[in-house]
Write a protein that binds this DNA or RNA. Structure first.
Length: 803
RNA sequence: GCCGGAGUGAUGGAACUGGCAGACAUGCGGGUCUCAAAAACCCGUGGAGUAAAAUCCAUGUGGGUUCAAUUCCCACCUCCGGCACCA
C-alpha cells in the first residue's frame, strides 16, 4: 500500500458526495421491507440544526438497516405551500413559487452535502401541479362522503391587513404584523369532519408504539367525557339544556350559567342588551391571566328538576358556547369556577358530596370540594358513592324523559379554509343558480393564477379576475370560484402515501403498493407536531381506508420525537444571535464530524446543547481512526501476540459488534459511538504495546464498518483504500463472548471489599472459602458471625455478618 | 390547577431485567515534543481524608422495601414541555 495522505475531509466529502449522488438506490428485493420516514421540511431557505439532527438520526438508522440486509424505503420531500413564501412576496416582490423552488434547491444541496441517502427519485413537492391535483381530488371525495362541509365560524380578522390570521399570528390580541387590534368575525368556512373519527382516534392510540407524551397529548386533545344532558325547566315555560359530567352533584345546583352567545338570550333577555354586549366583549378577550368572573343576572329563573328549587340564571363570561350545550348547571360547593362566581354574587352553596370516611362539612365552605365522595342531602340517593350515584341518577332522569346520557369531545372539526394565495385551491365554484358546485374531476387541478398581486391586504386570489371568474360546471352560467385555499396540514396528511407511488398519473397512489409498505415502520420528527399534524394524518389515513384506498388504519406505527438543538442552554434564534449555521459547520468540520457529534452528544429524544469543543472532540476521533490506516500501511506485516491478548481481542471485538448492533436497533447512538471509541482505544493501546499486531488490520476494518452508518464519507474512502466491502454489518462470535477468566466481586454487608479471580463455573462454596481467606475480607469478617451469603454466579458474593 | 418527562462529577452523558456508580467524551491540571506556540501524544482528574494507603461521604430532599437501590414503593422540592374557565 502506498503512503496514506492526511485526513482531508473536504476532499473526501466532495469526492464521495458525487459518487453518492450517482448511486441509484440498490435493489434489495429479498430483504424485509421497512418504511423509514422523516417529517418533511417547510422550505424556509436553509436547513437548521434541528433538521440536521432529524435527518442524521434517520440516515444513520437507514444505513444500518441496509447493512443488516433490509429493504428500506427512505424518501424526502418538501412541504412547499405556506405563509412565509407569501410574506416574502409582499416584502420583496418575488413570486412565492420562485422563492420556494429556490429554497428547495438550496436545501437539497445541503442535504446531499450532509450525506443523506434519500431515494431522490420519489421526491414530493406539495406545490407541484400533480400534488395539487390529488389534494383537490381528495377534497372532492371528502365532499362526496360528507367529510367536508361548510359552516359559519368565528375567525381572527385583522382590519389593518384586511385578512384572516391564524391563532399563532395573534399576539396578545394584536396582529403580529401591523399591531391592529384583532377582531372576531363570522365567516363561512370549510371543515373536515374529523369528529366522526373521535372514538377511533382515541382507542387506536393503544396500538401505537409512540412516546407516552405524544399519546397523552392526543388523548387530551380528543378529550372524551361522558355525562348527561339535563333539561332544567324555566319559570316562564320552556327549558334550558345543560351538559354535566357530575350528575351526582345535582342537588347542589344553586344557579345556572349560560354563554353570552346562547340563542336563548334572544328570547329571555331582550331587556338586557347593553349588559350582554359588554359580557360578550369580556368573554372574547383572550387574556393570559385568568379572567375575572363576570355575569349578568336574568329575570327568569330555572327550576331544579330534582328538588323543585327556583334558582337564578346568569349569562356569564366563563361559559363556552362551543362546548356542551353552551349552558351549565352550577354547583358552587363542588366546582372551583362556580365557587368563585357564587362568592362574587352572593349565591348560596349547598354541600351535597362528603369526602368518604369524614363527617360532612356544611355551608361554611372555604373552598369547593371537587373530588368524589358520598352523597348527602340528595334525597333518595344520599349515602351512595359518587360513581354509583352518577349511574343511578342518570338512569332515573332518563326514565323520566328529562335527561339523556351523552358523550362529549373536546376535538372540534378541522377548519381547512385559509384566506391565502399560496396554498392548494379548494376546487368548488359558487353559482347563483346551482349553489355550491364541485369542480369535475376531469378539470383538476385548479391551479393558482399568475396575475395575483401581493399587497399585504386581503387574499390575493380575491383580486385575480382570471381566477375568480368561472363557468358553472353544471349549468354553464357565470359563477365565482372559491378563493380560499386549503390549510397546509392537508398537504402533509398524505405525502407519505404519495412517496410510495409519486409518478402515478391515474391515482394518488396504487393500493397494492400502499398495502405493501404501509404503515410507516418508523417515523421521526419534532414533538411540536404532537397534536396537529400527527392527528390530521391519522384522520386522513382512516378516511382513506374507509374509502377503500388502503388497508392500514394508522399511518405511523412507531414514532421517535427528537429533542431540540440548543446553544448555551437556550433555543437557537436569530434574535439571540446564538445560531450555528449548517453551512459553517459543514465547511469547518465536515459532514462526518457533524453527524457524529449530533448523535454522540445526547440521546436522540433529549435536547442537545451544541458545543464547539464537543464537535472538535469528534473530529479528533475521526482523525485518530484515519491515522490507523497509516500505521497499517507503514508496517512490515502483523506481529504475533500471546494467546491471552488474542483472546482478549476476540472478546472485545465480539462485544463491540454486539453492543453497537443492539444500541442501533434501540436508537442509542450515543452509547453505540462510545462502544466504538472504547474499541478504538483498546486497539491503539495494544498497538502501542505490541506494535502492529496479528489482527490489527481486521480490527481496523471492523471499526470502519461499524462507523460507516455514522460517518459515511470517511469510511467509504477508507474502505476503498483497504479494498473492503461496507455492504454488510459484521457478525460476531458468541463463543468469543464467553469469558473464561473473571473476577468475582466480594461484598461484606453490601459494601465492596475485595475481588477474587474465579470463573463463572466455580461453585459457591469455593468462592465463599476463597473470600473468607482473603485478607481484605477478613478485616471485616473476623470475630463476626456470618449470617448468610448471597452468590450471583460469575458476578458477586455478598457476605452478611451479624454484630 | 391538571397531565407528561427529567434531576448523577466542573460539563454533555453511561450504568441492559435491583448486583463494582461516573463508561465514552469535553474541560481542567501536569508532562513529552518545540527556540516558542499550536497540533499530536502520555499521565492525572467526584468530595473529604492520608506522606501514601486505609477509610468515610456521595446519584434533588426525606422516609421505606431488600443481603444489596441511580434503578422498586411513598411523600416532598426544583426544572422543562403540553393543556388550561372543556362543566
Amino acid at each position: 500500500m502506498a503512503g496514506i495522505p492526511e485526513y482531508d475531509f473536504k476532499k473526501i466529502e466532495e469526492k464521495w458526495s458525487k459518487i453518492f449522488a450517482e448511486r441509484k438506490p440498490a435493489s434489495k428485493a429479498g430483504g424485509k421491507k421497512f418504511y423509514l420516514l422523516e417529517m418533511f421540511p417547510y422550505p424556509s431557505g436553509a436547513l437548521h440544526m434541528g433538521h440536521m439532527r432529524n435527518y442524521t438520526i434517520g440516515d444513520t438508522y437507514k444505513r444500518f438497516l441496509e447493512m443488516k440486509g433490509m429493504n428500506v424505503f427512505y424518501p424526502m420531500g418538501y412541504d412547499a405551500f405556506g405563509l412565509p413564501a407569501e410574506n416574502a412576496a409582499i416584502k420583496s416582490g418575488i413570486h412565492p413559487r420562485e422563492w420556494t423552488m429556490k429554497n428547495i434547491e438550496n436545501m437539497i444541496l445541503q442535504q446531499k452535502r450532509m450525506g443523506l441517502s434519500y431515494d431522490w427519485e420519489r421526491m414530493v413537492i406539495t406545490c407541484g401541479a400533480d400534488y395539487v391535483k390529488w389534494n383537490q381530488w381528495f377534497f372532492l371525495k371528502f365532499l362526496e362522503k360528507g367529510l367536508a362541509y361548510r359552516k359559519e365560524s368565528s375567525i381572527n380578522w385583522c382590519p389593518g391587513c384586511r385578512t384572516v390570521l391564524a391563532n399563532e399570528q395573534v399576539h396578545s390580541g394584536k396582529c403580529w404584523r401591523c399591531e391592529s387590534v384583532v377582531e372576531s368575525r363570522k365567516l363561512e368556512q370549510w371543515f373536515f369532519k374529523i369528529t366522526n373519527y373521535a372514538e377511533e382516534l382515541l382507542s387506536a392510540l393503544n396500538e401505537l408504539d409512540w412516546p407516552a407524551k405524544v399519546k397523552s397529548q392526543q388523548e387530551h386533545w380528543i378529550g372524551k367525557s361522558e355525562g348527561v344532558e339535563i333539561d332544567f325547566p324555566l319559570e316562564e315555560g320552556g327549558a334550558l339544556k345543560v351538559f354535566t359530567t357530575r350528575p351526582d352533584t345535582l342537588w347542589g345546583a344553586t344557579f345556572m350559567a349560560i354563554s353570552a352567545e346562547h340563542t336563548i338570550l334572544e328570547k329571555i333577555a331582550r331587556d338586557k342588551k347593553d349588559e350582554i354586549g359588554k359580557l360578550k366583549a369580556s368573554a372574547a378577550v383572550q387574556s393570559e391571566e385568568e379572567k375575572e368572573k363576570f355575569g349578568v343576572r336574568l329575570t327568569t329563573r330555572a327550576i331544579n328538576p330534582v328538588n323543585g328549587e327556583k334558582i337564578p340564571i346568569f349569562a356569564a363570561n366563563f361559559v363556552l358556547m362551543e362546548y356542551g350545550t353552551g349552558a351549565i348547571m352550577c354547583v358552587p360547593a363542588h366546582d372551583k369556577r362556580d365557587f368563585a362566581f357564587a362568592k362574587k354574587y352572593g349565591i348560596p352553596m349547598w354541600a351535597v358530596i362528603a369526602p368518604e370516611g369524614r363527617k360532612p362539612k356544611d355551608a361554611s365552605l372555604e373552598d369547593a370540594y371537587t373530588d368524589e365522595g358520598v352523597l348527602i342531602n340528595s334525597g333518595d340517593f344520599s349515602g351512595l358513592k359518587s360513581a354509583e350515584a352518577r349511574k343511578k341518577i342518570s338512569a332515573a332522569l332518563e326514565k323520566k324523559g328529562i335527561a339523556k346520557i351523552v358523550t362529549r369531545w373536546h376535538l372540534r372539526d378541522w377548519l381547512v379554509s385559509r384566506q391565502r394565495y399560496w396554498g392548494c385551491p379548494i376546487p368548488v365554484v359558487y353559482c347563483e343558480k346551482c349553489g355550491i358546485v364541485p369542480v369535475p374531476e376531469k378539470d383538476l387541478p385548479v391551479l393558482l393564477p399568475d396575475d395575483a398581486l401581493f399587497t399585504g391586504e386581503g387574499n390575493p386570489l380575491d383580486g385575480s379576475k382570471t381566477f375568480r371568474e368561472a363557468l358553472c360546471p353544471k349549468c354553464g352560467g357565470a359563477s365565482e370560484r372559491e378563493t380560499d385555499t386549503l390549510d397546509t396540514f392537508v398537504d402533509s396528511s398524505w405525502y407519505f402515501l404519495r412517496y410510495l407511488d409519486s409518478k402515478n398519473t391515474d391515482k394518488p397512489f396504487s393500493r397494492e403498493i400502499a398495502d405493501d409498505w404501509m404503515p410507516v415502520n418508523q417515523y421521526i420528527g419534532g414533538i411540536e407536531h404532537a397534536t396537529m399534524h400527527l392527528i390530521y394524518a391519522r384522520f386522513f389515513t382512516k378516511a382513506l381506508r374507509d374509502m377503500g384506498m388502503l388497508k392500514a388504519g394508522e399511518p405511523f406505527k412507531k414514532l421517535l420525537c427528537q429533542g431540540m438543538v440548543l446553544k448555551d442552554g437556550g433555543k437557537m434564534s436569530k434574535s439571540k444571535g446564538n445560531t450555528v449555521s449548517v453551512d459553517d459547520m459543514l465547511n469547518e468540520y465536515g459532514a462526518d464530524t457533524g453527524r457524529l457529534f449530533i448523535l454522540f452528544a445526547s440521546p436522540p429524544e433529549k435536547d442537545l446543547d451544541w458545543s464547539e469543543e464537543g464537535v472538535r472532540g469528534c473530529s479528533r476521533f475521526l482523525t485518530r481512526v484515519w491515522k490507523m490506516l497509516s500505521l497499517l500501511s507503514d508496517s512490515d506485516g502483523e506481529k504475533e501476540i500471546p494467546e491471552d491478548s488474542a483472546k482478549e481481542l476476540r472478546w472485545m471485538t465480539a462485544k463491540t459488534v454486539r453492543d453497537v448492533e443492539e444500541d442501533l436497533y434501540g436508537f442509542r447512538f450515543n452509547t453505540a459511538i462510545s462502544s466504538i471509541q472504547e474499541f478504538v482505544n483498546f486497539i491503539r493501546e495494544m498497538q502501542e504495546r505490541c506494535g502492529v499486531f496479528r489482527g490489527f488490520g481486521q480490527s481496523l476494518k471492523t471499526v470502519i464498518t461499524l462507523l460507516h452508518p455514522f460517518a459515511p464519507f470517511m469510511t467509504s474512502e477508507a474502505a476503498e483504500i483497504l479494498r473492503m466491502d461496507l455492504g454488510k454489518f459484521p457478525g460476531f462470535s458468541k463463543t468469543a463472548l464467553e469469558r473464561t477468566v473473571k473476577e468475582i466481586i466480594i461484598e461484606v454487608n453490601g459494601k465492596l471489599r475485595s475481588k477474587i479471580p474465579a470463573g463463572p463455573e466455580a461453585e459457591k462454596d469455593e468462592i465463599v472459602n476463597a473470600a473468607l481467606a482473603d485478607v481484605k475480607v477478613r478485616n471485616w469478617t473476623d470475630g463476626k458471625e456470618i449470617k448468610k451469603t448471597i452468590y450471583i454466579p460469575g458476578k458477586l458474593l455478598n457476605i452478611v455478618t451479624g454484630g
